[in-house]
Design a protein around this nucleic acid. Structure first.
Lengths: 182, 182
DNA sequence: TGTACATCAGTGAACGCGCGTTCACTGATGTAC
DNA sequence: TGTACATCAGTGAACGCGCGTTCACTGATGTAC
């Protein structure tokens, strides 16, 4: 909500190294050694900026989540609840995910670190709540449950697109059709 | 397809210990030490029956996948392709998942071990192909993409039900509605 | 401007721990004759 | 039935390695007077 606190340049460097590793390798190989090697700093430097490895991963996840959340909120603010807004927000979500290199790692591997899992689930739940408003406007019964499943589908499309590195029109179309936003 | 080879009693004991650990803790804590302690065997015994930890996890995943695949195939064989069969197979899938304690671990944490990830993805893809047949019968455009998204929704419901330990009627209903099987 | 001191970021060697894997040995079971 | 030998499963101590974390030290920057 409020703008994030100013970030130390070295911390930024480490986070960018983490982003690159998330994009190219994944969480399993994101060791402190790998991060500092990539960032070109000493190993001890890592602990000057992050209390431990877990805090680093959480900070990294927060960046991704923040970027996507902003894009979705912007898209949603432009239209009244309904099918059109649902279409906008789903596409905005997918475009935002596609634009964030390394995001897939958190979408698919986050389950290991409990705190990250919670953060990811929270973000998806917020998205579901937003979608539920559209569904209620469309008089869909079971709006809450349906919204949750639509988010699951969007999640699947986002992962597929990250793997492919580009949009997947057939999946997007199917998503909009099944969601009732087509 | 063919019946599995006879399994050594001690190997069975280890696999059951692994199942219990998957159910109660998860993949991250499934160390060889934890498995053999649970099974009540010596640590070296583990390696008499499995070449390494990875082979053990793959064998464990295969058991879950086989159980679910059989249930789904049985359900599908009882009816001609169409909305009714789609409803049957989705419910059969969910019931089978719910009946397999510890399955959730592989549904949510499998992404770590690449070989398991592949096996899980393969199983889900087979399921999607089955569903695509129903969708084509229903004249749905984009059957393949839609089937993939329906599997993603079923996946989400299966996880929710495993967490809750029981069926989640609202989610199942929403799944069938969004799938066009309602 | 100069001096003394405090603060802070950078560094990499060293530590400790967990965990997967190995291995030499033991005992039981099966086979040959 | 008895004997010698081969095979196989069980065992736990020991090994090696990776990796997260710590820490004493260095150099740079800021502050006080």
């Amino acid at each position: 909500m409020s703008s994030p606190p100013p970030i130390h340049p070295t911390a930024e460097l480490l986070l960018q190294a983490g982003t690159a590793l998330a994009d190219q390798r994944g969480l399993a190989t994101m060791t402190v050694d790998a991060v500092v090697e990539r960032a070109g700093t000493g190993k001890g430097t890592f602990y000057r900026h992050f209390s431990d490895q877990s805090a680093f991963l959480i900070a990294l996840q927060a960046r991704f989540a923040s970027g996507v959340a902003t894009a979705v909120a912007d898209a949603a603010s432009g239209a009244p609840p309904g099918a059109a807004r649902l279409r906008f927000t789903l596409n905005a979500y997918l475009d935002a995910c596609l634009g964030q290199r390394g995001l897939k790692t958190f979408l698919t591997e986050a389950r290991n670190v409990p705190e990250i899992q919670i953060a990811v689930d929270d973000a998806l739940e917020s998205f579901a709540k937003l979608i539920a408003v559209d569904l209620r406007t469309l008089k869909l019964p079971n709006a809450q449950a349906s919204a949750r499943l639509i988010v699951a589908m969007a999640h699947e499309v986002a992962i597929a697109e990250q793997v492919a590195g580009r949009r997947h029109p057939a999946l997007r179309e199917a998503l909009l059709e099944l969601s009732g936003a087509g």
